[in-house]
């Protein structure tokens, strides 16, 4: 995967980073510190993979983080991770639904 367009097709996501599961940058757009974001999201993907395995939930598809003023979303598959910052936190639910529809076909 590691395809930026998976997230940048949403108008609310203007900053995104695609990386591998080890945290190295593959591609990025609008993100000033792509290396840090890729490293951190690689680590988040790994930790949720561990949690999912322990709980029998299978492979992770995406992880979203919602705050009052900011939100972000990470799409995950076995090869890569794409992380995007969501400009309008209220639009997160719509992005989650769209990813649910898109990821089974992509993975």
């Amino acid at each position: 995967m590691a395809d930026l367009s998976l997230l940048t097709r949403f108008p609310e996501i203007r900053r995104a980073v695609a990386g591998d599961r080890r945290g190295s940058v593959v591609d990025s757009v609008g993100e000033p510190d792509a290396e840090s974001l890729a490293a951190v999201t690689g680590s988040i993907a790994e930790l949720f993979t561990q949690a999912g395995e322990s709980l029998g939930l299978g492979e992770p598809r995406w992880v979203s983080v919602e705050g009052e003023k900011q939100a972000s979303i990470i799409a995950i598959d076995e090869d890569g991770v794409v992380a995007g910052r969501v400009d309008a936190p209220r639009s997160l639910a719509g992005i989650q639904k769209a990813l649910d529809a898109a990821l089974p076909r992509k993975v």
Partner: peptide, 19 residues
Amino acid sequence: AVQLEQEEWDAITAQFADG
């Protein structure tokens, strides 16, 4: 790890294949 990039958070949702 999440807080390294987004210190302020209310909810985190992790979607898996089966839950």
